[in-house]
């Protein structure tokens, strides 16, 4: 008998639409998620991240493939994920009219906790996330970040073995974001909770994840630790240039950079070997182009570079 994984996914395929307009939202996807792992799914908008996790929660049935969750076949038994996992979706309309405290406590009750236990669990999680001062305010009257944090609190309450979170920190300020990351790490460290986290934020992926699957057009194009993924493209660095005015087009360095740069307005982003980048930067800062240069950054590879190096085509990943 092999070890029991939080998720063992094989050949998962799901189409949206029918006939010629059908799109493969998940395409022959394999995934193993260990117990106690903080696992991330990183990808641009439209990569199929949400469709993937909704299948993992039993919310939609795959067209083909199998999903085992902690040893249970959840394609045959979509009633099982709610018993093992808590899910944070992108919509919180169901809770919008409720005061934060009531929303958290009601969710605890619906996860089977008794009255007293629900109240205690509510107090604990609201203190943990710093929500106590706004306990009596309805979610819809909160700022976007506070509202998201309240929804996270509803997900954390009731102590599930698996947490599936679809972009939990969208709209959160840096302090609240760190509070969520700490809360997740704490649960993993103390009770071995498995966290599956969807993100399109590179910083989040690099900061909190043990392993990350990079998703593009419904396929996993890479899956490893953030460190190893970055090491796989470590020959290159990224040189970003910001121009305050039009750079001199007759400068040979500019011509060469322009050929390979991804240009967005005044911003040029280029990838090259460290040696080439040093040389290009030396020429730029010493030559006539320097007068037009407003700012530059030289960075080691991020997960975004991994995504692009692996053939990812979208530009909607967030860096901060």
């Amino acid at each position: 008998m092999g070890r029991v994984l939080s998720y063992a996914v094989r050949g998962l395929t799901r189409r949206h639409g029918v006939g010629e307009r059908a799109v493969l939202a998940t395409c022959d996807l394999d995934l193993d998620i260990e117990r106690g792992e903080v696992f991330g799914v990183l990808g641009p908008n439209g990569a199929g991240k949400t469709t993937l996790v909704r299948q993992l929660m039993g919310l939609i049935r795959p067209d083909a493939g199998s999903i085992e969750m902690l040893g249970w076949d959840i394609v045959a038994r979509p009633d099982i994920p709610p018993r093992l996992a808590a899910y944070l979706g992108q919509a919180d309309t169901a809770l919008a009219d409720l005061p934060v405290g009531v929303a958290v406590e009601t969710t605890a009750r619906l996860r089977g906790l008794g009255r007293a236990a629900s109240r205690a669990a509510r107090t604990a999680v609201m203190d943990e996330l710093g929500l106590a001062p706004i306990a009596s305010r309805p979610l819809r009257h909160l700022s976007g970040g506070q509202r998201r944090l309240a929804a996270v609190a509803c997900t954390l309450v009731g102590d599930r073995q698996v947490l599936v979170l679809d972009e939990p920190t969208t709209g959160l300020d840096p302090t609240a974001r760190r509070a969520v990351w700490s809360a997740l790490q704490r649960r993993r460290a103390t009770t071995g909770v498995t966290v599956l986290l969807v993100t399109h934020n590179v910083l989040e992926a690099e900061t909190v994840l043990d392993r990350v699957a990079v998703l593009d057009a419904g396929r996993v194009i890479a899956c490893d630790t953030p460190g190893r993924l970055k090491a796989s493209v470590s020959g290159d660095v990224r040189l970003d240039l910001v121009w305050r005015s039009e750079p001199p087009r007759d400068d040979p360095t500019i011509v060469r950079l322009a050929q390979h740069a991804e240009i967005t307005g005044h911003r040029w982003s280029t990838r090259m070997t460290a040696a080439d980048a040093r040389e290009a930067l030396a020429r730029l800062t010493a030559g006539p182009a320097f007068a037009a240069l407003d700012d530059f950054t030289l960075a080691t590879p991020s997960l975004e570079d991994v995504y692009l190096a692996l053939g990812g085509a979208s530009r909607t990943l967030e860096r901060t």
Partner: peptide, 8 residues
């Protein structure tokens, strides 16, 4: 989804 992912 909120209700459908609760064990009720």
């Amino acid at each position: 989804d909120y209700y459908l992912t609760l064990p009720i």
